[in-house]
Design a protein around this nucleic acid. Sequence first.
DNA 1: TGAGCTTGGATAGTCATGGTATCCAATATT
DNA 2: AATATTGGATACCATGACTATCCAAGCTCA
Lengths: 229, 229
Amino acid sequence: MRISELVERTGVPLATLKYYLREGLLPSGEATSATRAAYGETHVRRVAVIRALTETVGLSVQKTRDVLQLIDHPEEDLVGMLGKAIEALPPNVTPDARADYPRARAVLEKLGQVYEPRFAAVAQLEHALAAAEAAGIPLDDERLAVYGPHIRAIAEFDVRNVPREPAAAVEYAVLGTAVHEPVLVALRRLAHQDLASRRLGPGRDATKSPRGKPPKAPSATKGRSWKKD
Amino acid sequence: MRISELVERTGVPLATLKYYLREGLLPSGEATSATRAAYGETHVRRVAVIRALTETVGLSVQKTRDVLQLIDHPEEDLVGMLGKAIEALPPNVTPDARADYPRARAVLEKLGQVYEPRFAAVAQLEHALAAAEAAGIPLDDERLAVYGPHIRAIAEFDVRNVPREPAAAVEYAVLGTAVHEPVLVALRRLAHQDLASRRLGPGRDATKSPRGKPPKAPSATKGRSWKKD
DNA sequence: TGAGCTTGGATAGTCATGGTATCCAATATT
DNA sequence: AATATTGGATACCATGACTATCCAAGCTCA
């Protein structure tokens, strides 16, 4: 297909596609002549991934390019790739191997995981913990005892499902880490709303302005029983 | 204290503090004279919260102001406040009550939660699910069956710990939702790295450059027993 | 008292991002 | 041949988050 069709298929303006081309996010189509190139389904998919990474995950165009290059040039070392990908993900904190991340270290020790200051995620965790502290809601032991195992279980599922084929594994690891984060975050927010509205009782309005029927009582929800504190 | 001291205490440049003042993120100190004002600990804390929200959570200055105003003017309706807060959080998708969010609806039905298109989080979830799909890693039933309950459990803990006092509850709900997200995300990334390095076997190097002894089994951690699901 | 420093308040400038818009010349297409 | 579409290059623009200056009205301390 020609680039004009790519515009139609993806809904992304021509000028923007050219921009992605320039920035190296999107490989140029196969040149069929001096002034013409053919694009394929891979390009359609690539554009979708670019938008997912930039719009939903919130990566900058530069970081998106880094991540895509990781996928395009997979190395055998999955763990190393994963590390590099995580480094590209927000929040953009650059790890300093010689720095000390006391909060992160304490947390990791409690979780029985290795504290490795070269991991970008350690610096990210430190940052996040400091922010929580600053906001007046530190991650105390009790909360960590809840968050830790559940997050670990989620991560175990993720890792269990890594494809065997190396290239696919890299793509899964890199994209999966990034792309499921917003899903998890949204699910938590929705669970908050669901629980809060049930807790504060049906009968009161569930939303700010719209007058919506408050979600019906906690009744039967998959047989789950939510004890209310 | 004078503003120059606030600069020292927070490490934020004067020009930036003035910017926050202008934008209404930071209340001005109590005027002691025509050209002098006194700042207190509340200001120090406020600046910390501003940085946490902008740097770590990734809010824009505008959205940060919205969130802070929510906290400063708490209403009794906690659920409504929570909804407004979530609306200010990234990704910035504005919910359309008349729109249909098919992916989000399907997920919520499977989870036994109410589908309410006015909730911003529903639109956010739809967005995230579409992005995951575009990236080639859709949230299939199996994954949802794992993510859902664990996230729910986390959210239950969060809701269980809402303070009783209304103003404190609003602050906890609004800040807690936002501020713990980066923590959860960082924990998942670290769990990925931990699991991946264990999986690809000790014996192989755990990171690209650093040589880290693979963590010992999750066994006993501080005598605390967190049952793993 | 007065020289110099610190403020608050206002205004303008800067830098990075993430696009948009144009122009052009070389083809395709009809 | 006439018209439309490309690729490639270049220039332009809007937003956001600061950052820098200016100024005049106080403080402060010798």
